[in-house]
Simulated scan of single mutants.
Amino acid sequence: MGLTVLKPGLLTTVQDFGRFGHQRQGVVVGGAMDKIALRIANLLVGNHENAAALELAMQGPALRFEQDQVIALAGADLSASINGEPIRLWRPVLVKAGSILRFGKPTYGNYAYLAVAGSIKVPQVMGSCSTYLRAGMGGLEGRALQKDDTLYFGETSETNKLVLSALLMQAKKETSFTEASWWPEPELLPRYEPNPVLRAMPGLEYSWFSENSREYIWQQKYKLTAQSDRMGYQVQGTALALEEKRELLSTAVTFGTVQVPPHGDPIILMADSQTTGGYPRIAQIITADLPKLAQVQPGGTIQFEEVSLEQAQHCYYQQEKTMLALQQAIHNKLNQV
């Protein structure tokens, strides 16, 4: 038993942190677009942070639970409901067997994460359960979910059982689901914005660009186009140009690299970015702001703010410090039950 896919949604895939250590062979890292939301969803149900979960893009699926299960939703608000009753993000929820989880119109963000106690059970490929669609690798047969698919759950841990016990104490027989009476403090959760300012460092080819372009990248706003996906976000704004025509051999790129093709509109590489690229790199968005970037909807605008390497490292440290605080808060709450 597990869950049955009644409707697949726009793009529903199994994701974890991704595949590391294989880029020299041309294998992309991939993984969740918003890794902070994935981590929090997993912590809320008692999983390891890197457990396989479902990533739901924009238009979520319809899923029927064939057994009682503890779940948590995090990331974008896709107007989730169980048997027609709204459920909230960022908290554990006990769902009874036979209940149907559906999604409606996105309120904010692009990517939501559905974690289940024990994780989504799929084989690991090169150390990861993440789905990489272009290679047909990982997840469920290397593809997005389809109607009538069945997914199974992994074995539950003692922490999973603590979450279940806490929810059973609140559960009522006549209800199809029970939300936890507790949830993380707002300061421990990501802050998404429709038109964010993203902190970035100058890229390795930054000096190749004209003086005007080096000013524009920090001053102008760029609009996210509909031609955006897990591989890259295309943005439009003031065109950027090199000081003089130069050729660049393919060189290393990663999630958050801002490349500039000849037409002058930047492309921001995302979770499924290739391992090397041949366009000049004008900037690199810092790791701490990648979740915020992932949740910008098409039509939203972004602006870049220059920071130093030291500032980027500090932001990452603060983000990880917050995650540790959240993990400890959940641990303390469960041990009070």
Rank of each mutant, 00 (worst) to 15 (best):
M1A: 04
V5H: 12
K7E: 14
P8H: 03
P8M: 08
F20R: 14
V27P: 10
V29K: 02
G30I: 02
A32G: 06
L38W: 14
L38Q: 14
I40H: 03
Q59G: 09
Q67G: 00
Q67C: 03
D68V: 01
Q69K: 11
I71M: 03
A76Q: 00
D77P: 04
D77R: 00
A80C: 02
S81C: 14
I82D: 11
N83F: 03
E85K: 14
P86G: 01
R88S: 10
L89K: 06
R91M: 07
L94S: 00
K96I: 05
A97K: 11
S99V: 07
R102H: 10
P106E: 06
P106R: 06
G109A: 00
Y111K: 12
V122K: 11
V125W: 13
S128W: 02
S130K: 09
A135N: 05
M137L: 15
M137V: 04
E141C: 13
K147D: 09
D148I: 02
T150P: 09
T156I: 11
L162G: 08
S165N: 12
M169I: 14
S176M: 12
A180R: 06
P186D: 11
L188E: 10
P190I: 03
P190V: 01
P190E: 04
Y192M: 09
E193I: 00
E193S: 12
P194L: 05
V197P: 03
V197Y: 13
A200M: 02
Y206D: 01
W208R: 00
N212G: 07
S213I: 02
S213V: 04
Y216F: 11
Q219Y: 09
Y222T: 04
K223M: 12
L224G: 07
T225H: 09
L240N: 15
E244F: 05
L249S: 07
G256P: 06
T257N: 12
V260R: 05
V260S: 05
P262K: 05
H263L: 03
L269M: 15
M270A: 02
T275V: 10
G277E: 00
G278P: 08
P280R: 03
I282A: 10
I285N: 08
I285S: 09
A288Y: 01
L290G: 05
K292R: 15
A294E: 08
Q297M: 15
I302D: 13
I302V: 15
I302G: 07
V307Y: 15
L309C: 11
Q313R: 08
Y317G: 04
A325F: 15
L326A: 10
Q327Y: 15
A329M: 09
I330R: 03
Q336Y: 06
